[in-house]
Protein backbone atom coordinates (compact mmCIF):
# COMPACT_ATOMS: atom_id res chain seq x y z
CA UNK A 1 0.00 0.00 0.00
CA UNK A 2 1.30 3.45 -0.87
CA UNK A 3 0.36 6.62 0.94
CA UNK A 4 1.66 10.17 0.73
CA UNK A 5 2.48 12.15 3.84
CA UNK A 6 -0.03 14.92 3.20
CA UNK A 7 -2.83 12.43 2.68
CA UNK A 8 -2.06 10.47 5.85
CA UNK A 9 -1.70 13.65 7.91
CA UNK A 10 -4.95 15.10 6.57
CA UNK A 11 -6.79 11.86 7.28
CA UNK A 12 -5.52 11.63 10.87
CA UNK A 13 -6.07 15.34 11.48
CA UNK A 14 -9.67 15.09 10.35
CA UNK A 15 -10.16 12.07 12.60
CA UNK A 16 -8.83 13.95 15.64
CA UNK A 17 -10.61 17.24 14.87
CA UNK A 18 -13.95 15.48 14.50
CA UNK A 19 -13.66 14.31 18.09
CA UNK A 20 -15.41 17.36 19.57
CA UNK A 21 -15.17 21.09 20.22
CA UNK A 22 -11.96 20.77 22.30
CA UNK A 23 -10.23 19.09 19.36
CA UNK A 24 -11.52 21.37 16.61
CA UNK A 25 -8.44 23.62 16.70
CA UNK A 26 -5.87 20.83 16.70
CA UNK A 27 -3.16 21.18 14.06
CA UNK A 28 -0.68 18.58 12.84
CA UNK A 29 1.90 19.81 15.35
CA UNK A 30 -0.34 20.29 18.40
CA UNK A 31 1.06 18.40 21.37
CA UNK A 32 -1.91 16.19 22.24
CA UNK A 33 -0.33 14.79 25.39
CA UNK A 34 0.73 18.14 26.85
CA UNK A 35 -2.67 19.60 26.03
CA UNK A 36 -4.50 16.74 27.73
CA UNK A 37 -6.30 16.01 24.46
CA UNK A 38 -5.34 12.36 24.09
CA UNK A 39 -7.36 10.14 26.42
CA UNK A 40 -7.48 6.36 26.24
CA UNK A 41 -10.71 6.37 24.20
CA UNK A 42 -9.27 8.60 21.48
CA UNK A 43 -6.00 6.70 21.50
CA UNK A 44 -7.75 3.35 21.10
CA UNK A 45 -9.94 4.76 18.33
CA UNK A 46 -6.87 6.12 16.56
CA UNK A 47 -5.20 2.72 16.73
CA UNK A 48 -8.33 1.08 15.35
CA UNK A 49 -8.57 3.69 12.59
CA UNK A 50 -4.90 3.38 11.60
CA UNK A 51 -5.07 -0.41 11.64
CA UNK A 52 -8.20 -0.43 9.50
CA UNK A 53 -7.09 2.29 7.11
CA UNK A 54 -3.44 1.39 6.63
CA UNK A 55 -3.30 -2.31 7.43
CA UNK A 56 -0.94 -1.95 10.37
CA UNK A 57 -0.85 -4.07 13.53
CA UNK A 58 -0.10 -2.39 16.86
CA UNK A 59 1.31 -3.94 20.01
CA UNK A 60 1.08 -2.48 23.50
CA UNK A 61 4.70 -1.34 23.27
CA UNK A 62 3.86 0.76 20.20
CA UNK A 63 1.65 3.01 22.35
CA UNK A 64 4.53 5.30 23.18
CA UNK A 65 4.42 9.07 23.68
CA UNK A 66 6.78 9.51 20.73
CA UNK A 67 4.36 7.77 18.35
CA UNK A 68 1.19 9.55 19.49
CA UNK A 69 2.36 12.98 20.66
CA UNK A 70 0.93 14.76 17.61
CA UNK A 71 -0.82 14.05 14.34
CA UNK A 72 2.50 14.66 12.61
CA UNK A 73 4.20 11.99 14.77
CA UNK A 74 1.39 9.53 14.00
CA UNK A 75 1.80 10.19 10.27
CA UNK A 76 5.53 9.47 10.63
CA UNK A 77 4.70 6.20 12.36
CA UNK A 78 2.30 5.15 9.61
CA UNK A 79 4.71 6.06 6.81
CA UNK A 80 7.65 4.33 8.51
CA UNK A 81 5.60 1.18 9.03
CA UNK A 82 4.37 1.18 5.44
CA UNK A 83 7.92 1.67 4.18
CA UNK A 84 9.34 -1.12 6.35
CA UNK A 85 9.69 -4.57 4.73
CA UNK A 86 6.93 -6.93 5.84
CA UNK A 87 7.85 -9.79 8.18
CA UNK A 88 7.10 -13.24 6.79
CA UNK A 89 4.01 -14.76 8.44
Amino acid sequence: MTADRNGVEADLLQFVQSRGPRHADVTADTDLLDGGLLDSLLLTDLILHIEGQYGMQFEGADVSPGNFRSVSAMADLVLNQLAAPRQPA
Binding site: L33, D34, L38, L43, A61, S64, P65, F68
Partner: peptide, 11 residues
Protein backbone atom coordinates in the same frame (compact mmCIF):
# COMPACT_ATOMS: atom_id res chain seq x y z
CA UNK B 1 4.93 11.22 28.81
CA UNK B 2 7.76 13.46 27.60
CA UNK B 3 10.44 10.89 28.21
CA UNK B 4 8.61 7.60 28.79
CA UNK B 5 8.39 4.49 26.62
CA UNK B 6 4.63 4.11 26.98
CA UNK B 7 1.73 6.56 27.28
CA UNK B 8 0.68 6.81 30.93
CA UNK B 9 -2.81 8.08 31.84
CA UNK B 10 -4.84 8.91 34.93
CA UNK B 11 -6.35 5.39 34.83
Amino acid sequence: NRAGRVVVTTA
